[in-house]
Amino acid sequence: MNDPRQASDRALMTEVVLPGIVEPAGLQVRQRPVPVPGPEQVLLVMEASGVSFAEQQMRRGKYYDQPPYPFTPGYDVVGTVAAVGAGGDTALVGRRFAVLTKTGGWASHLLVPAAELVEVPAGVDAGQAETLVVNGITAMRMLHRIARVKSGQTVFVLGANGGVGSTLVQLARRAGARVIGTASLRHQETVRELGAIPIDYRTPDLTAEVRKIAPDGVDAVFDHIGGEGIVASFGLLAPGGTLVSYGTASTRDAQGSSKLPVLKLIARLQLWNALPNGKSAHFFNIWAGKRRADAFQARLDADLTEVLTLLADGAVKPQVAARLPLSQAAEAMTLAESGTVTGKVVLVPDTAQDGHAAPSGNPE
């Protein structure tokens, strides 16, 4: 694209807009002119953007710091640079990058800061790379920077068939840890293949089932559910163990404040940290430290590059639940919320609009 300003006058892009608190069918697909990158920006052509739990919360108005409606969701994206802003590095054009966006990823084209691009290794499929952007960073940091899991330890992963959970299982096994993970009966074989010992999440006494495997408790628990169940998670820890909470899925459909469940959870974790039992409890926020932009981006670059390298080397198996075209974002959201898939649902460009073949929406 030699002159992106002229191209934007004739080219249209597609974006999905969340207009307010709606059911998935209420998502709106719109078109507008392709934007022009400004200084220090690039124009990214989306190749894959994920449907994460964050978007499920956002459509309910339950994500902690979501922007005002209307806005375009899309927590992370993988795409190819089509143009750079004035004075930008033209060597970026034509190369594939991953970006952590929080919002804006559900669009055929988007503007992102050039400084936030993380290159995807050559030969890596865009959809597979996408599953490991926010999920890979989250799992890597929780496992190694917070819980500091070591070989020979035992960890417990709630939702081991999910996007973050399945990544956690693989990274923990790679670190030499034994993994116990919850999943529905239909997903237990997949969880077992990833290397974890599966437990049905609907088991009446989940604590007792975990204790059968780890009588003295576990060294780390990774809990995305929150709510009152967090008490049981903390109780499963062995002396010196670490609880890492990274979500409040149990309150997804609850009425009221979007912030209160998170604040109550953090207060509870802080209270537990004051107890003289040698255990620790943490709430993981991927955006912590964002105010120190350079240091934040340097850590993100390092962590995401490591995860994508593991993917390129075959050390981590991506869990792509399904690929659906951008125009079917409502169907993708419905599928992601159904609890019937393993891994992450991925949005890809539409064939006619964006010039790319849209893979099948069937689970892979």
Results as ranks from 00 to 15, higher is better:
179 V>P: 01
165 G>D: 05
117 L>T: 02
70 P>C: 02
338 S>E: 08
24 P>M: 10
282 H>K: 04
55 E>C: 10
303 D>S: 13
21 I>R: 12
3 D>V: 05
103 T>L: 03
343 G>Q: 13
78 V>S: 07
348 V>L: 11
280 S>M: 09
301 D>R: 15
181 G>W: 04
107 A>Y: 10
211 R>I: 06
192 R>G: 01
82 A>C: 09
274 A>W: 02
107 A>M: 14
83 A>D: 04
121 P>R: 13
317 K>S: 14
166 S>K: 03
63 Y>M: 09
243 L>I: 10
73 P>Q: 10
24 P>G: 14
162 G>D: 00
287 W>C: 01
11 A>T: 01
230 I>F: 01
162 G>P: 00
72 T>S: 14
281 A>H: 04
327 S>D: 14
173 R>V: 15
5 R>E: 00
147 A>C: 09
73 P>R: 08
172 A>R: 02
298 A>Y: 12
33 P>A: 01
159 G>F: 08
180 I>H: 04
136 G>V: 06
48 A>H: 01
19 P>N: 06
147 A>K: 09
273 N>T: 07
49 S>T: 05
253 D>C: 00
285 N>P: 05
309 T>S: 03
288 A>V: 03
90 T>A: 15
55 E>N: 08
108 S>G: 15
361 G>W: 00
286 I>R: 11
50 G>R: 07
314 G>F: 07
227 G>L: 02
163 G>T: 06
295 A>H: 12
156 F>I: 14
329 A>K: 07
